[in-house]
Design a protein around this nucleic acid. Sequence first.
RNA 1: GUGGACGUAGCUCAGCUGGUAGAGUCCCGGGUUGUGAUCCCGGUUGUCGUGGGUUCGAGUCCCAUCGUCCACCCCA
Length: 429
Amino acid sequence: MTEQIQPVRGMNDVLPAEMAAWHAIETAARELLSGYGYQEIRVPVVERTELFKRAIGEHTDVVEKEMYTFVDQGGESLTLRPEGTAGVMRAIISNGMLRGQRHKLWCAGPMFRHERPQKGRYRQFHQISVEAVGYVGPDVDVELIALCARLWRRLGLQGVRLEINSLGTAESRRAYRERLVEYLQAHQDQLDADSRRRLQGNPLRVLDSKNPQMRALIDAAPLLTEHLDPQSQEHFQGVCTALEGLGIPFRVNPRLVRGLDYYSRTVFEWITDALGAQDAVCSGGRYDGLIAQLGGEPTPGIGFAMGIERLVALLRQGGPCVTPSSADVYIVVSGPRASSFSLGLIERLRDELPGRRFELNLGGGTLKTQFRRADRSGAALAVILGDDELQRGVAALKPLRREAGQSESPLSALAAAIESALAVAAAQT
RNA sequence: GUGGACGUAGCUCAGCUGGUAGAGUCCCGGGUUGUGAUCCCGGUUGUCGUGGGUUCGAGUCCCAUCGUCCACCCCA
């Protein structure tokens, strides 16, 4: 055997056995989003590198070390999208969709980040990202969160908790950042290596440290929520009261900082204990400055993204997602005349019973083999087509899921006979 | 990028202080020459991740390398 070609690290095949969970999530999301007035948009997986640098921020980990960037034949630097929002905002601007108009959009597809794979974290992963552009909030903030909550309910997901915070406007955050840097620099000696590094690039992330030895220092640090500008304060208060009004439980986490620079004001994260270290299942926030930053006319926006692989993992933990058996009827064929006749017969049956799933025995085999395949196909009924039957103008029907004798039906009335045999089989299960 | 655990049949795994490979499952054939699942009998699974080294001898010990998983980091 020649050497096998290995799959690319961190990029997974989604196998048929997992598909039921994917479809459950995708169809539930699709239906719900449409019910909330969101329209699907599809944008390229590849964009100019500059787009992500400007949107996400030069000093974020994503841009600094996680992007799949390459130079194409024309010498341009292109990047496989590491997240969905930037591309959708670019599309809105490119297609002249602003001019005071408002848009509710969603976009699904693969994202790429060059990180070390681990549970719930892959180099190619899938997101459904949802964007509301031109809405100042806080009502839309709350509606989006309610949409998420409804989706979890519909999918039967337990134990997904909501955490929210406000990052304020870019200006108030800048002011707070100065206070924080002052504080952290005053305690330089207590900082661990990671935090010192963050202090340079993205000081707010120091607050996110998981190192227990940093706990006391972080707890005593000035709080972002206490340095919000009055409008942001009011906005956040509006979000909180509306969530309470809707009966959606949440926790204000003053240390919830997002990794992408474009967020402002409301940020939120749905987290779970069931997935190990990668606990965020869905997260997002406002990005009021982003569109202007990308060269569009200043327009507020908010959005979130859910990680499909993580939702699939959660859903499958709750119980197996059963893929329906692949066939209703399996057609067993015996003899040379029957073989040549069977393809035409099954095509006719498909015309007559378009909703039924037929599987024709392909590739020959003994009767024993064919019945074994029939059994494994999950079909409730086997239709036997042999030269004997053919000569008499009939086909034999054998129920596979219960002990019952075979019967025969004239070929001319086969579709009706199959329907009634399947009805009997269904009634008994 | 850093750390830890692990790589043996398609799958799940066993293999002791070094003596050239096993179970279950799956698949195939037969018992049943026109009948599955069950049962009985038989059969194929393999560069032991890869490359070196130590040794009379390596799945087992050592080194390197690749891969997987988990955690750090980061985030969906």
